[in-house]
Design a protein around this nucleic acid. Structure first.
Lengths: 196, 196
DNA sequence: CAGGGAAGAAACGTTACGTTCCCTAGAGGC
DNA sequence: GCCTCTAGGGAACGTAACGTTTCTTCCCTG
């Protein structure tokens, strides 16, 4: 494998990241080791340790590199439908990264590095929720109260909670989050428009 | 320490549980080992391995033994106040068990054993929420719609999410969960009384 | 009081950790 | 195109915990 070429910088880094993801896929997060990654990547342990003092940091970087961007889902015709489509996308991404892996990262990384972890958990979901709510307002589903995005965020929080902590999220539960919590709150706001 | 007596059954078990909790407190969940627990408890590794094949199972049992029961908080005069008091209690219990520990348990135990883990995370919080809602109804804060306890549950879910996944829960955030999500939903229900 | 089951001690091989030493390929400056 | 110097990669090391085996000894049970 190390026949002739010796990789550097970018190329080496990407090869390591790919190897990390493959190892996690093969043996799970807990079963992933520096030695396994080194062997699979065709490199050596010191090369890995020079870059990452902890396994969690290494795995985090590898997954961040491959993280797919969240995109605004197609218009389904209703706020309820749009929210469900979005949350289902978020759910499948979390499940793709793996519950054990995400929990492992959360457990091992100090909260100070939590910023980056939340990238994996779609803290930026708000960027997608904005357009969805705009769409709903254009349809007339919301009044013209200021964008209460703070109410759509918790819907994503609840999805995270179910997937990571409870361990499963059924379609029924997801629908309930949207139809019994998010949509009522969003529309009630526009109706009552009573300031605290 | 092992001067003369050799413990059996219950007494030994409780001593081990106490040692586990002390080890976790001293070295954190990740830093807790079978050897450390054995030494502190004045017993030996085989004794531990005979009982628990995994560290997670051992720690879980130790914490379950010491878990304080959730009690219905004193009447604060309002649904909002009661909910806040209850959620703050739940929060402090989770923080007492420790974020790292809880995340570690969630990550290592199969979801099949999740039932027991949720004991630690107050799945039974519903037992407390019921009385709180009854109280609110007697005050006239709710209509007489059927108990929508399914709306108070998510408030607890959001607290769990903030403490475990986000890593911190400020008083402001907790207040917002109650006053902007739980209470509006609970009271709106009784006002609209619209089926479906 | 006899028998058996479990406690506890000691040691074992294995695996991964995290580090060190060294050699050499190749990138970049001149 | 040579020279330097950085960084890749191999190998080995001590340490620590794992998970298990063996054996002795105590205490509960019948």
């Amino acid at each position: 494998m190390a026949a002739t070429t010796r990789r550097h910088g970018e190329a080496l880094l990407r090869a390591i990241h790919a190897a990390v993801r493959a190892e996690v896929a093969a043996h799970g997060y807990a079963g992933t080791t520096y030695e396994g990654v080194a062997k699979r990547a065709g490199t050596s342990k010191p090369v890995l340790y020079r870059r990452w003092p902890t396994k969690a940091g290494m795995v985090l970087d590898a997954f961040l590199e491959a993280r797919p961007g969240l995109t605004v889902p197609a218009d389904t015709g209703s706020l309820s439908g749009d929210l469900k489509a979005f949350l289902r996308t978020a759910q499948s991404m979390m499940e793709r990264a793996g519950r054990q892996t995400l929990l492992g990262l959360l457990a091992e990384l100090d909260p100070s590095a939590g910023e980056a972890v939340r990238e994996l958990l779609f803290a930026r979901g708000a960027d997608v929720l904005g357009p969805l709510l705009d769409r709903a307002r254009r349809r007339g589903e919301l009044g013209d109260a200021p964008l209460p995005i703070g109410i759509a965020g918790p819907a994503l929080d609840l999805v995270r909670h179910e997937v990571l902590i409870v361990g499963s999220l059924t379609d029924e539960k997801l629908d309930a989050i949207v139809d019994e919590i998010a949509v009522p709150l969003l529309t009630a706001r526009s109706r009552l428009s009573t300031g605290s």
